[in-house]
Each structure stands twice: as structure tokens, then as C-alpha cells.
Design a protein around this nucleic acid. Structure first.
Length: 114
DNA sequence: AACGTGACACAGC
DNA sequence: AGCTGTGCCACGT
């Protein structure tokens, strides 16, 4: 039966975001805009952030920060320190909610992925 | 059904 | 060189 319409919205975009975030290697980080751009940059980076809001378990959302390398979403975690703690646990240095050497550990999906 | 908000990014001043 | 405004799309009220 192909007549099955979309039961809800189109989580396709969200699923894509989750897939990319899951591919982020340990010790690396990426930005919302990078993911949005990889998906076509049709949608604003805001949607990527919103997607993270519904990110299921297994998605290292802490490896996604804004283009500034700033932990803007740390407030959405269990605790405001969870994000930083996770990053530090992976070997990423964070100072003042800002990732040190951000451009050095930046992982661009459009560049690392085919 | 419309308005406002939001884990961003970029152009303009 | 930093601040303001606008664009983007989905979701909550």
C-alpha cells in the first residue's frame, strides 16, 4: 500500500542530522551551520539546533556547537556543565564555555564525508 | 489559525 | 570592531 501518507511531519531532515552527528569522531566537533550546509543549507541552522532538541540517545549533541565554538546549548543538557564535562572527557579543552583550538578540531561533514 | 520563540548565521552600520 | 536587524523553518501556546 503505497497510499500511506506521512503519518506526521517529516523527520527525514532530523534523522539526517542525527546520522551526521553520530558520525562525528570522538575528540572532534562541528557546528550547526556546517551540518545545515551539508544537508543543503536550505534550512537555517536553527533547525539543526531544534533537531538536537529531539535528539535520541546515542547522538553526541555535545559535539555540536555554534560556529563560534561556543557551547550555546549547554543549558539544554541535564546540567549546564554536562556538555563541557563530556567534551573535556573526550580530550577537548573548554574555557569559558568556549572550545579551545576550535578550528583545529573542527569536523566538517561536507569535507570529511563523501 | 496566528503570534512568538528558538541548541544559528550573515549582512549592514 | 562590536552591536542590531533579518532570514530561516518548526514547534508551542
Amino acid at each position: 500500500m503505497a497510499g500511506k501518507k506521512k503519518p506526521h511531519n517529516k523527520p527525514n531532515f532530523f534523522e539526517d542530522v542525527y546520522a551526521i552527528v553520530r558520525l562525528i569522531p570522538k575528540g572532534r566537533v562541528t557546528s550547526y551551520g556546517a551540518i545545515a550546509k551539508y544537508l543543503g543549507a536550505k534550512m537555517s541552522s536553527r533547525m539543526v539546533g531544534w533537531a538536537m532538541h529531539g535528539a535520541p540517545r546515542g547522538v553526541p549533541a555535545h559535539r555540536v556547537v555554534n560556529r563560534n565554538g561556543l557551547l550555546t546549548g549547554k543549558h539544554h543538557f541535564k546540567t549546564p556543565y554536562t556538555m563541557q564535562r563530556l567534551l573535556e572527557k573526550e580530550g577537548i579543552q573548554v574555557f569559558n564555555d568556549k572550545i579551545i583550538r576550535f578550528s583545529d578540531i573542527f569536523w566538517d561533514p561536507a569535507r570529511e564525508l563523501p
